[in-house]
Design a protein around this nucleic acid. Structure first.
Lengths: 238, 238
DNA sequence: GCTGGTCTTAACGCCTTCTTAACCTCATTG
DNA sequence: CAATGAGGTTAAGAAGGCGTTAAGACCAGC
């Protein structure tokens, strides 16, 4: 998420409502992705990592509450339920399974936007949570757990921060300056030697062969980047 | 907050509603304090440090939104607004000024309770009643009972609170700050030494071998976490 | 005012992690 | 093919976090 723009996933089986929400939210500069089923929702959550989920309870393939429970097993993304059901049991079930808010249709657009601001404001403290993965390398931010295959890797706080930074956008190159700023919280000085040492240590912990890194790639003269698809044994000469 | 009970401050100018809420919430084992004005609310927040505020917007001395804004200047206590006003502007104003939720009277008691659970869960003030378990370590919040296997363990209130905090999300790392905030109810000061002492004591009571903790794991430089699956002789942090 | 439990403070030693510095590798290039 | 420079490796000392212990302060209930 940048600025006030949010990436919002809208799940509803009715096309009309999806389009209405997309149009409305787009006006307020949010990026909207649509899903019409529970399974699609789960897939898109992993693929696109939106900032917020707006969910209708009546889905064709699975119950909305089921979807919420599933999601809450591995993600703390804010969820706002939007439903025609006004029965108290439905609200309770949804809220207790982990929804952040519940609005009954019809609703006011202004109220929806206010509630969106609310849940996002509240959850932005726990920025970047959940599980990230590339190849066999998996990273669970909340548990501070890094695994490679089924092996648990123990990282120092600095190493963890570096890897987390790279995981923010796998494939993207982060300059030395960017990484140092994030990890050491400083804008001055030349900590590049420090960074190199830590990258080295990190590689020795996570790379099968530290001499030929598959996960953390070096971009000479620029910085480092996390490999998108480590399956490719693409050795040199990009 | 001690035990699984929440300390709730109810602000409403109508005596009848205050009493109704107090009676209702008391049934669910919550401790309720009442206020009938904005000023009284602010005073009681400081004096009693409740876990949650339920606020009516129509107050004799100042506007409800004003009260919320005031509070948000120095506290992040969960606030649920309860109001007869159903106008959208009122909802938006309340939510944007920092309320966590907004219910329109009349409301269902079940929904109110669900929304309370929701905001409390999210603010991680951490209410939970019931029995939780990991490995041989079992914790009954309501009865204040901790057992390891069939042995009953006697914990001090502080130790109990710490363990309860960790039990909130087994596996998740809680930072020192988070634990201290919850257990000692303070946002300032450096109580980390205090926490370390208590963790040590706690370990000596529940760990088979305090030198090699299986339940309470240390994440160096970060905090502590409760082990998900203590069966594994996981290699993390000795 | 005594007593037992709990909370807090302080001191100390250990151990991980951070940082530094010296040295090594490798690709590029004159 | 040696010079150069960017990046990688390694080891050792410094710094700081953590666990432990014990003693004093506090706060009931008696």
């Amino acid at each position: 998420m940048k600025d006030g723009k949010l990436h919002i996933l809208v799940t509803d089986d009715e096309t009309a409502i999806r389009h209405f929400l997309k149009a409305t939210l787009s006006v307020y500069d949010h990026l909207v992705t649509e899903a019409e089923s529970g399974q699609k929702t789960l897939d898109l959550l992993v693929e696109e990592r939106p900032d917020l989920l707006i969910l209708d309870l009546g889905l064709p393939d699975m119950d909305g509450v089921e979807v919420i429970r599933e999601i809450r097993g591995w993600s703390s993304i804010p969820i706002i339920v939007l439903s025609v059901r006004n029965r108290e049991e439905d609200k309770i079930a949804a809220l207790d399974s982990g929804a952040d808010d519940y609005l009954t249709k019809p609703f006011g657009v202004g109220e929806l936007l206010a509630r969106i601001r609310g849940v996002v404001r509240r959850s932005s403290s726990g920025l970047m949570d959940g599980i990230y993965q590339t190849g066999d390398l998996k990273m669970d931010i909340g548990r501070r757990l890094v695994t490679i295959g089924s092996n648990e890797i123990q990282l120092t706080p600095t190493e963890f921060d570096i890897l987390k930074t790279l995981f923010q956008k796998p494939g993207k190159v982060f300059t030395h300056r960017q990484i140092i700023d994030k990890v050491w919280n400083t804008h001055l000085g030349d900590e590049s030697r420090l960074l190199r040492v830590n990258i080295s240590n990190l590689r020795h912990k996570i790379e099968p062969d530290p001499n030929r890194p598959t996960y953390i790639k070096t971009d000479l003269g620029v910085g480092y980047r996390l490999n998108d698809n480590p399956e490719d044994a693409s050795p040199r000469s990009s």
